[in-house]
Simulated assay, not measured.
Amino acid sequence: MKKRIALSWSGGKDSCMALHTLIQQGYEIVTLVTTAPKEIGRTFGHGERTEMIRLQSEALSIPVYFIECQLESYTEQFIQTVKDLKNQYQISGIAYGDLYLDEHREWGEKVAEAAGVEAIYPLWTRSENALHLLEQFVHSGYQAVVIRVREDVLDESWLGRLLDDSFLKDIQKVAICPMGESGEYHTYVFDGPLFSKRIQLDKPEVVELETTKKLEFKTCQFI
């Protein structure tokens, strides 16, 4: 019998790789979990419209559960949600797409322990393996676009770039983690082997935020 688990989902390449790996390992992902402050209707991590996450959920045929969290009670609300999902879906674990930052893993393990489930890190590795992981994603059949960059390390020209061989070559010329593990860049996956439909992103517009620049797509739909 497959282990039933939830997956923390940002919509980007890391959580997509985690999903693919978990399925290969025989897990049953019964729900995706995304944090999204109720007031703004956007994801907590990448600032993406919840509509775009719902499209991914539908294309993957996995329901998404939005945690309507607030910063001051983020951890408590996450723990309570995992407890609720444990009761609702009989999950035995929650998986994360983190790669090597110890503080991220410590937080995820703390949440899982408090909720009485297992913390699963299918991509966990050493920082020196980040480039290999990016190579794996580029050649995996999934398609992703850069939707956000940290202005102190990457300029606006990176926005809208596809994660392809050209991106793989150019990212090695910049002194950052190739996978953007410290938030140097964020991505959105719009197609791939597990997707039943391709998501089309149209009418891009660059939005300048406090320390980052973001690519805002005015319309998104299945094709």
Score class of each variant (00 low, 15 high):
residue 177 C to H: 14
residue 81 T to L: 06
residue 176 I to N: 04
residue 182 S to R: 15
residue 111 V to L: 04
residue 32 L to T: 03
residue 63 P to F: 06
residue 50 T to Q: 09
residue 47 G to R: 00
residue 68 E to G: 06
residue 131 L to E: 04
residue 39 E to K: 03
residue 105 R to T: 02
residue 46 H to P: 03
residue 150 R to D: 08
residue 206 V to L: 11
residue 120 I to T: 12
residue 25 Q to G: 05
residue 47 G to Q: 01
residue 93 G to E: 11
residue 85 L to Q: 10
residue 33 V to G: 01
residue 102 D to Y: 13
residue 213 K to Y: 08
residue 32 L to F: 03
residue 22 L to F: 09
residue 126 R to C: 01
residue 126 R to P: 00
residue 5 I to W: 09
residue 182 S to L: 14
residue 73 S to L: 02
residue 139 H to Y: 09
residue 32 L to S: 02
residue 87 N to H: 05
residue 19 L to R: 07
residue 130 A to N: 13
residue 151 E to D: 10
residue 85 L to P: 10
residue 114 A to S: 12
residue 133 L to A: 04
residue 161 R to S: 04
residue 158 W to F: 12
residue 142 Y to R: 04
residue 185 Y to D: 01
residue 24 Q to W: 08
residue 116 G to Q: 11
residue 120 I to A: 07
residue 173 K to D: 04
residue 23 I to V: 15
residue 210 E to K: 14
residue 5 I to P: 09
residue 219 T to S: 08
residue 43 T to R: 08
residue 147 I to H: 00
residue 57 S to C: 10
residue 76 E to N: 12
residue 76 E to Q: 14
residue 95 A to N: 04
residue 107 W to T: 06
residue 74 Y to I: 03
residue 29 I to M: 13
residue 216 E to R: 13
residue 8 S to E: 05
residue 92 S to R: 11
residue 204 P to R: 06
residue 136 Q to C: 12
residue 138 V to P: 02
residue 5 I to F: 08
residue 211 T to S: 12
residue 189 V to K: 13
residue 37 P to V: 05
residue 69 C to L: 14
residue 142 Y to A: 05
residue 221 Q to A: 09
residue 134 L to C: 05
residue 166 S to F: 07
residue 12 G to V: 05
residue 211 T to G: 09
residue 146 V to H: 01
residue 66 F to P: 10
residue 55 L to M: 11
residue 68 E to Q: 14
residue 2 K to S: 11
residue 183 G to E: 02
residue 142 Y to D: 05
residue 174 V to L: 01
residue 216 E to M: 13
residue 170 D to R: 00
residue 71 L to F: 14
residue 144 A to P: 04
residue 143 Q to I: 00
residue 191 D to A: 15
residue 120 I to E: 12
residue 175 A to H: 06
residue 61 S to I: 07
residue 176 I to Y: 03
residue 206 V to M: 09
residue 142 Y to M: 08
residue 22 L to Y: 11
residue 214 K to F: 00
residue 168 L to G: 02
residue 89 Y to I: 01
residue 188 Y to E: 09
residue 33 V to L: 15
residue 55 L to G: 11
residue 211 T to P: 00
residue 38 K to S: 13
residue 108 G to H: 08
residue 174 V to K: 06
residue 209 L to T: 07
residue 176 I to D: 01
residue 16 C to K: 10
residue 212 T to C: 05
residue 67 I to H: 12
residue 195 F to A: 03
residue 143 Q to G: 10
residue 21 T to Q: 15
residue 20 H to K: 13
residue 13 K to M: 10
residue 208 E to S: 14
residue 210 E to G: 02
residue 200 Q to K: 10
residue 75 T to M: 06
residue 91 I to Q: 12
residue 19 L to F: 11
residue 70 Q to N: 15
residue 151 E to V: 00
residue 132 H to I: 06
residue 206 V to E: 10
residue 34 T to M: 03
residue 222 F to I: 02
residue 52 M to P: 00
residue 23 I to A: 10
residue 35 T to A: 14
residue 93 G to H: 09
residue 97 G to W: 01
residue 214 K to C: 00
residue 170 D to E: 14
residue 81 T to K: 15
residue 39 E to Y: 01
residue 210 E to V: 08
residue 84 D to F: 07
residue 12 G to M: 03
residue 27 Y to K: 12
residue 150 R to I: 01
